[in-house]
């Protein structure tokens, strides 16, 4: 009895530091984003309660909502690229590593490597390749086809998003790929063995044996991708600057948020309330997308 009592007290000491830090610096700010979102407040001076005013302005004010929906559209466009291009590539690469193609250890090491490289360095690498004046690609094109073959690359509104996705693929493919890979390693060997005995080819085995077993890693990866896609900031900011580049093709909601929340000196307006309203919208989108993902993938699972 005495022992039990002591137990009951001591766990508090272990939990308290983490609980306080996490609550004060993670959860309270999140809650306050909701609170601030119903005020008109520049950060100094009195707050004015405006109810849903910030949200109404965000969705209906012509100047603001144009920027906002353009950015939100880009977020979804990117998310679509993740689902249709990046995730399949990750699964494919992971499977290639899983069946141990030649040099698989080296390939795995190199594919994951960019994950540990800072985005500001990745942004510079992209510049080395794609800069219209000093970039390597234009130099190669000039050498092969003459001056007319040069491209504006990141300055070209039609190309900037494609380049962005390519850079993301190079930088971020490793983490998701390794999550799929780890999942494949966990598939019970009896199942794979049975399919081998049945004379199942590599391709068929992938479709009918391996792929259906990937639901857990698929859920993880898609959830992580949704969060990453909705909070996209670093790479577009580094590649094309805080305004989203050529005709705002690389503008994302987190960048719109940044301009309203912290860009006062550059963009003429700092609005805590309005910035918080954007955060709340991001929160709602992330929440609903993760719920949808979980529900959808639960259905496939058996």
């Amino acid at each position: 009895m005495k022992k039990k009592k002591r137990k009951n007290r001591s766990y508090i000491g272990f939990i308290a530091p983490g609980f306080i830090m996490y609550t004060v610096f993670m959860m309270v700010p999140l809650a306050f984003a909701f609170y601030y979102s119903v005020f008109d407040w520049s950060g100094i001076g009195p707050k004015t309660f405006v109810g849903f005013g910030n949200f109404i302005r965000l969705f209906t004010n012509e100047r603001v909502s144009g920027t906002f929906f353009n950015a939100l559209g880009n977020n979804f466009k990117y998310l679509l690229c993740v689902l249709l291009i990046i995730t399949p590539i990750q699964i494919f690469f992971a499977y290639m590593l899983h069946i141990k193609i030649r040099f698989h250890k080296y390939i795995r090491f190199m594919l994951f490597l960019p994950y540990v490289i800072s985005t500001s360095i990745v942004g510079f690498f992209a510049m080395i390749l794609f800069d219209p004046n000093v970039g390597v690609l234009n130099k190669i094109l000039t050498a092969l086809f003459g001056k007319d073959a040069q491209q504006a690359w990141l300055g070209d509104p039609d190309m900037v998003f494609k380049i962005f996705v390519c850079v993301i693929i190079w930088q971020c493919i490793g983490s998701g790929m390794m999550i799929f890979f780890a999942n494949m390693q966990e598939i019970p060997s009896e199942i794979v063995e049975a399919s081998v005995i049945d004379g199942c080819g590599e391709w068929k085995r992938f479709w009918h044996v391996v792929l259906p077993m990937l639901t857990s890693s698929l859920t993880t990866n898609i959830t992580l991708s949704v969060i990453y896609a909705m909070t996209m900031f670093d790479l577009p900011y580094i590649l094309v600057g805080p305004q989203g580049g050529a005709t705002n093709k690389l503008d994302f909601i987190n960048m719109v948020f940044y301009r309203y929340a912290f860009g006062g000196t550059y963009f003429g307006e700092t609005s805590i309330g309005f910035g918080s309203a954007i955060s709340v919208v991001m929160f709602v989108i992330i929440l609903s997308l993760t719920i949808v993902t979980k529900k959808l993938l639960k259905k496939i699972e058996y």
Binding site: S10, Y11, M26, P29, A261
Partner: peptide, 30 residues
């Protein structure tokens, strides 16, 4: 340790995985 509300606390600490710190960055800044 086993204690009351442990499951709740565990999911509370997992919230941070779903809602990145960026969402609360403005209040955090203030």
């Amino acid at each position: 340790y086993e204690f009351k509300g442990k499951a709740l606390l565990e999911s509370y600490f997992l919230l941070g995985l779903m809602f990145p710190i960026q969402l609360g960055i403005l209040p955090l800044f203030i």
